[in-house]
Amino acid sequence: MNKAASELVLNPDGSVYHCNILPEQLADLVITVGDPDRVEKVSQYFDEIEFKTRKREIVTHTGSLNGRRITVISTGMGTDNIDIVFSELDALANIDLKTGEIKEDLRQLQFVRLGTSGALHQDIPVDSVVLSSHGLGMDGLLHFYEDSLMVRDLDMEEAFYEHADWDDSKAVPYVVKSSTELLEQLSSDQTINGITATALGFYGPQGRNLRLAPHPVDINEILSSFSHNDHRITNFEMETSGIYGLAAMMGHEALSVNCIVANRALGEFSKDSFKSVDKMIQYALEKLTNS
């Protein structure tokens, strides 16, 4: 069935509406970053850059490193932006933009998020790197898609729901695993694995108290005290669960790589987060292009 113009929105040049890129400008390996300024921090290490574009907060560079073609794209913050960017990137890969028809031979992409995060345990130091074995979503995004039950870890969801005594007025938490292949490829003695909790905001949803009191006030303690089948929640951020859920439903591989810039348990923040993020970027690029 063809997609209506109001469903698959294109720019006058035929590129997808928000990302502003054409199918041939998208590599099979896609690195996502939240901050538009971080795109250049990644692509500076490419051997060559063949394409650049920008629309709003979405900046895209496509190039290559060590013979592997890579696209790096900024998503902005939050799973609402992830929904836009991942839907459009999948359309570039798997929908004929001229006819609006889904292609018979589907293209699988690899998504690697390079982002910042806050640790929930004292033994996870600032400036360390956490790989997300699972994404725990408290944002509700996946509940708007019919196929979400097919990719979710329902046992872990139920265990967390009971552990947290979850408030039914909030979106039901969901859990999705990372790509096993990418997790193994990027794991080393320099990384820590754990469940990453994804909040739909930075302040109240992550337990920060400025003038408005968060609810529940002890969300960090609820998260840090949870474990299931030897997995614990290690860190907090705002995109991973949406990335994992959408990628899994679309048939893509995804991994979230998190530079720990804050330790919520200790109240610490990195003294040089830019250096730590750069180190994470170089580590990930080496693992992705030299393995």
Rank of each mutant, 00 (worst) to 15 (best):
P216Q: 09
F269Q: 15
G207V: 02
S241T: 04
S224N: 08
I195V: 14
G204C: 13
V257K: 13
E237K: 03
F202Q: 03
E253D: 15
E268V: 08
L182D: 04
N193A: 05
R232L: 14
L186N: 03
I243Y: 14
I219C: 00
R211C: 04
A197N: 02
F202W: 04
K275S: 12
S256H: 04
L210A: 09
I260C: 09
L255F: 10
G204K: 09
S270T: 03
L183G: 04
H215T: 12
E268A: 14
T191K: 01
T196L: 08
Q185V: 02
L246T: 05
T191V: 01
A247F: 08
P216I: 07
G204I: 02
S273H: 11
K271T: 15
A254S: 15
E221H: 14
N235P: 09
G194S: 03
I192A: 01
L186A: 03
L182E: 04
Y203V: 05
E221P: 04
G242R: 06
M250Y: 15
L210R: 07
K279W: 05
S224C: 10
G194Y: 04
H228S: 05
D230E: 15
I243G: 08
S225I: 12
D278H: 02
M249L: 06
I219Q: 00
M238D: 09
V217W: 12
F274S: 15
K279G: 13
N193T: 03
S225W: 11
S227V: 09
T234S: 14
V257C: 15
A262R: 03
E237G: 05
N220K: 14
I222K: 13
S187P: 00
D218E: 14
F202D: 01
I222S: 01
C259M: 13
S227W: 07
S187N: 01
I260H: 10
I243T: 03
F226T: 07
A254W: 08
L210Q: 08
N258V: 07
D230K: 09
K271G: 13
I260Y: 03
M250G: 10
G242F: 11
V277P: 00
D230Q: 14
S188R: 01
I192E: 02
N229P: 05
G204T: 14
V261P: 05
L255Q: 12
L246M: 14
L182H: 00
R211F: 10
S270C: 12
Q206S: 14
I195W: 07
A248W: 02
D272K: 09
Q190R: 13
